[in-house]
Design a protein around this nucleic acid. Sequence first.
DNA 1: CGGTCGCTTGAGAGCAGTCAATAGAAGTGG
DNA 2: CCACTTCTATTGACTGCTCTCAAGCGACCG
Lengths: 247, 247
Amino acid sequence: MHNCAIPGHPTAPQQRSSCTTCSLRELCLPVGLTDEEIEYVGNLTNHKLRVRRGEYLLHAGADFRSLYAVKNGSFKTYTLRVDGRQQVTGFYMTGELLGLDAISPEKHTCDTVALVDSEVCEVPFIKLEEIGRSIPSLMSQFHKIMSREIVQDRGVMMLLGSMRAEERLAAFLLNLSTRLARRGYSSTDFILRATREDIGSYLGLKLETVSRSFSKLQEEGLITVNNKHVTLHDLGKLNRMIGNSMD
Amino acid sequence: MHNCAIPGHPTAPQQRSSCTTCSLRELCLPVGLTDEEIEYVGNLTNHKLRVRRGEYLLHAGADFRSLYAVKNGSFKTYTLRVDGRQQVTGFYMTGELLGLDAISPEKHTCDTVALVDSEVCEVPFIKLEEIGRSIPSLMSQFHKIMSREIVQDRGVMMLLGSMRAEERLAAFLLNLSTRLARRGYSSTDFILRATREDIGSYLGLKLETVSRSFSKLQEEGLITVNNKHVTLHDLGKLNRMIGNSMD
DNA sequence: CGGTCGCTTGAGAGCAGTCAATAGAAGTGG
DNA sequence: CCACTTCTATTGACTGCTCTCAAGCGACCG
């Protein structure tokens, strides 16, 4: 049964969906395919799941069967540390693919919880591999997505290994900024879905340090913060701060 | 031409090689294949490259065409930071696959240098995708390897985000220990190929801190260090130190 | 055998963590 | 709709870990 008893698990009825009509054609797997191919790929994502804010899409340890493409909304993934506290491993927004870490162990390694009401497409992995065999460009696109995940994680490792608190926060905000811009939202004005604690966990900082860093960036005139509402005033300076030339 | 002019680039003549006779059948891509399939896969890794200690296998920015399986030896990968210093992103030993980060940008993102005299199998990526289409289990194995890379990076993020110097070093040593054991080497007695500075860069620490942490672990009786020669005395305590239950 | 490179150790500075108090936002139930 | 509780965020004071700067030692290589 899919409607399991775990509290917070999504219980909304599954809906049929189609890649042909999906608004994420550019962001999800089917990129550079003919309409005919996309039609065929439609078999891939047969289920759309609704996950309400605070509900879990996945629990660590669950058997791996599917990847999940975020159709809209926002998720965080985390693992539990020995002391029982959460270590946030990633944030996922519209058009991004969840569950890549589960392919090798064949178990999900992260708890995955919705930060706002969200929808995801379930992509059975066996089907993906099957269909990928007949549509090489689909397979290639999938490989690029996995590779991109590796590159992204490397970026975070870099950040954790060599940046100070303020720089980490700046890098985080700029990362959000580009990802939002790619989706047509403002790159300079947005609402944070994560708490200071989640951000801190992701950036290897305590929540107090995150808060102080927000204040510091604000004092320096680089941003304005009002709780979850953030405005970036100078993308150039922020980029230079973390060692990106601005172009 | 493959023998390019970059100083330190491998210049050894390329040799034909075969997966059928390769000693790494368990570790490399061809896992769980029939001998017939492996024979076929032989077309995959048509070149064996020798890279001497200190020579570069790859330079950041180079066009992506192939992955490289380490046949024997040891490599480090790093990117250059703004200040010109190296940030080490990974260590690779026998049986591990180099270059996965390059698939998406279609450029290599890391400089890759041999820490000891080494040999690698060049695996043209186009061929891998091609052959993978006819041999599903090869493709699946490749996906697992990519996924494992993601899981491994997550582990490092965890480490960088939440552990103190001594714990990071313990985790690093234990990681080496398991990887060496899997290859039939001693899990408690080995030679470090990397310098204190490289280890520090990878772990987000300064070389002095790495050195101090080595000394501290030795004082506590957990290890013996003599320059590059390390002996682990108590895997159990080391594991518990980083929050692994010992089983 | 001298030089270079890598490693160790010490002393002091600085940044982030810890503990604590307060304020504000959001969600709940009467 | 308001009162109440809980969750989240901000700020301060102090501690402590890691970095920085510096000196000295030892290994390896030419």
